[in-house]
Design a protein around this nucleic acid. Structure first.
Lengths: 251, 251
DNA sequence: AACGAGGTTTTGTATAGTGAAACACCCGGG
DNA sequence: CCCGGGTGTTTCACTATACAAAACCTCGTT
């Protein structure tokens, strides 16, 4: 349904692709910039931008006249999270876990062949893992990715391993064995696997029906994720995942 | 340019109107619901929703199959505010003011004939003003609205007073006199003007060129906004507005 | 069974969306 | 001065994309 190839409106998809140009670190973009990124003619982009601007999703910076995200996004964001939602319900326990470990706590869900960080509580330490809510990351790398795959149906693992973006040298059988190990351990560890200098430990969060709903992770600089600390993190994150499961079961 | 009547793409505007159905308190909506709200045929709405879903702006709740805002909004929101931005720069001072007064502090900008709350720090009190970032409100009512108009060009005041949404019984001359009074005082007070039980005091924030950029307001339950307290709030909010002006001038 | 509610699919058509070109403006260099 | 390169804005001929209506499907209720 949501594969984007059927029964959709091309003009709308193009406009949304323009909007997504602003989801990276770029703050302001000019018309030609955007046209290059989305590979459309300038005049088409100009019109699509005018449409986005007409509804407040895009605005023009008063000084530079470059395009920026509009305030309308703010208006919507309070409705993405809502009470009773997973991302809201888990926040107190994530905050408690952050206070216990003083590392950055993130909650990921799987969306297709990616994971999305839908909630985060950052460490207070000067050197910490920065955690942008909404960020999308691969599933085939990192502790949380492995947790999300370890408890997903085999078709999902297959789909991920068939993703063209996957490194050609990834050993499928070794990867499957890793997922088995994650299931046995009940958590996953990654040391500088996705990003140099960064490490994480993640545990699965199950809902009231025993279905995987999210991965809870603690992440930070790799030099703080060694031997005894890693085990301590694993215990704590696993315990919190169970507490969240109880909350979801009771709620 | 951004009046939405020229050189825009109708399909895109329609899709965005659908997205805006979710900006009120509605969390989930069905196809027929949405079609009624935007006054389009079901099949059109179905296609537009599929387009929004293809890019992650809309998702379907796994249990109810109703439509909800997608996670993509989260991904964008971190780019609406950015360091160096007004809404980011003022946050420490707003937090300090909230801690001083223990009332909700908001920052509004004018956008056309409306005001938008672009930043907020809520009171800790059990009964407090709730402040949703991104909310749009009229300019012709409320302390912040009057502040934003009092320092706007006359054409803007004219435009606002000609807005069809304005109450027919609004006394234009009295309103103009109120704006003059606001300019003399250097702040505005509103008691149960926009909303029963709620009151606010607001002061103007100027940029380095002496141009009005925002209104800083303190708001809460009306019964806490009486005589001496109101004056105290006025002094404090005006002082903070000046501090913000200094920050903007220095930065 | 019929009916009404919800959502999904199909289809003919005309108009809405498109891209290319022209235009406007700015800047820097010769 | 002209030229070229960059930015953004406007116009217009053309056609295929977006549309709405109808049909269809499922489910629950009477």
């Amino acid at each position: 349904m949501a594969d984007g190839e059927r029964n959709t409106v091309r003009a709308v998809e193009r406009a949304l692709d323009i909007l997504l140009c602003f989801s990276s670190t770029e703050m302001e973009l000019g018309l030609s910039d955007i046209a290059k990124r989305v590979k459309l003619h300038k005049s088409t982009v100009h019109r699509l931008l005018a449409s986005l601007e007409s509804r407040g999703f895009i605005r023009r910076d008063p000084h530079t006249q470059n395009y920026r995200l509009g305030w309308r996004i703010l208006e919507l964001v309070s409705n993405v999270h809502q009470s009773g939602d997973l991302s809201t319900v888990v926040l107190p326990e994530m905050t408690r876990l952050r206070d216990l470990l003083d590392e950055t706590i993130s909650l990921y869900i799987r969306s297709g062949t990616e994971r999305i960080r839908i909630q985060a509580v950052e460490s207070h330490q000067p050197v910490r893992r920065v955690a942008n809510i909404g960020q999308r990351l691969p599933l085939y790398v990192g502790a949380s990715g492995k947790v999300l795959l370890a408890w997903s149906p085999p078709e999902v693992v297959e789909q991920v391993l068939n993703d063209p973006k996957i490194p050609p040298d990834l050993d499928r059988e070794e990867f499957i064995r890793q997922l088995e190990r994650v299931r046995e351990n009940g958590y996953a560890i990654s040391i500088e696997e996705r990003e140099a200098g960064a490490a994480a430990v993640a545990a699965p969060v199950f809902d009231r029906n025993g279905q995987l709903v999210a991965a809870l992770s603690v992440s930070g600089p790799a030099d703080r994720f060694t031997g005894a600390a890693t085990l301590r993190f694993a215990e704590a994150v696993t315990r919190s995942a169970k507490i969240i499961h109880q909350i979801l079961t009771a709620g």
